[in-house]
Simulated assay, not measured.
Amino acid sequence: MSPVLPTLASEPAEAGGSQAVKAQLRLREMILAGDLPGGSRIAELAIVERLGVSRTPIRAALMRLEQEGLLEALPNGGYAVKTFSERDVSEAIELRGTIEGLSARLAAERGAAPLLLGEANACLAQIDALLAEPALSDDDFSRYVALNEKFHALLGEMSGSAVIARELERVAGLPFASVSGFVVVQANSPKARDMFIVAQHQHRQVLDAIEHREGSRAEALMREHSRIAQQNMRAAVHGPYLHQVPGVRLIRKRS
């Protein structure tokens, strides 16, 4: 049975835009949790009744989720929950790796700000401390995810390019393409810590390349780094972790 979601009508009256954002967040949760299965048509009236808001913010939320790529517009009107092939997801991850690689190369060639380099080194030192433990607790794993996301965000800032920053934000918003999109697959894997150590070594090498102004090396390392996400995606789709990764049921397995 799906969990009962609190209605937005029970909250203080707010601007329509705020209601649309909240409806968008609730609908995204429902899609990724499987409450709205892949391929199913969205019944607008049912969503209105379930969330307890008017049609206007629901329609705005549906439009935004289509822009995010989680919904697709139907020819005769309305929306359906989108599904994705493994190739779709693989290409989204590859695109993120390509843009992150370009960002790392520009950071190396232009010279990254010392403050950002210091923050990145401090972030990696915190990850080192986590990985010094023989095993990761649930809290340690959550901490790793947060630090991993912070490090990637700092790398994105180092290029000093507003264009690159916008593209990184856009590609990270594609379904399953964020830096932690499939990291959860590693949580209960016997080889989780080993994989994190490999990823951390790559983090160190990328930062070293940026600090030594080695643009081509930084770009190649960042492209290689995205292969870990590809491995995790395949493990999520074909392994025993379907219930752990939000939205993974939206990915169609290769026949």
Rank of each mutant, 00 (worst) to 15 (best):
V53F: 02
I58E: 09
A92G: 12
L174M: 11
E133S: 15
M63D: 04
P114N: 12
D139Y: 15
S159D: 07
V183N: 10
V89L: 03
L117K: 08
A112F: 00
G97C: 08
A61P: 02
L117S: 11
E109I: 02
L62K: 02
E86R: 10
L136F: 00
P114A: 14
I127F: 00
S54C: 14
G77S: 01
A146Y: 15
S85W: 04
A104G: 03
A46H: 02
E72W: 13
P57M: 00
G78M: 07
E66M: 01
L74K: 12
H152A: 06
C123A: 13
G156W: 11
A46R: 06
F84P: 01
G118Y: 03
G156N: 11
R105P: 05
E109V: 06
I93R: 14
R59G: 06
L95Y: 13
R143K: 15
K150L: 14
L70S: 06
L124S: 08
R105D: 01
S137I: 08
D88L: 07
A113F: 14
G97Y: 03
A92K: 10
G78P: 13
S54D: 14
R105M: 06
V163Y: 11
E66H: 09
G118T: 01
S161A: 04
E68A: 04
L74R: 10
S161M: 00
E119L: 10
L168W: 07
A43R: 09
E169C: 02
V53R: 14
E72M: 15
A120I: 11
I47L: 12
A165I: 00
E68V: 05
E86K: 04
V185W: 14
S161H: 07
V163K: 13
E167S: 09
A73Y: 10
R64C: 01
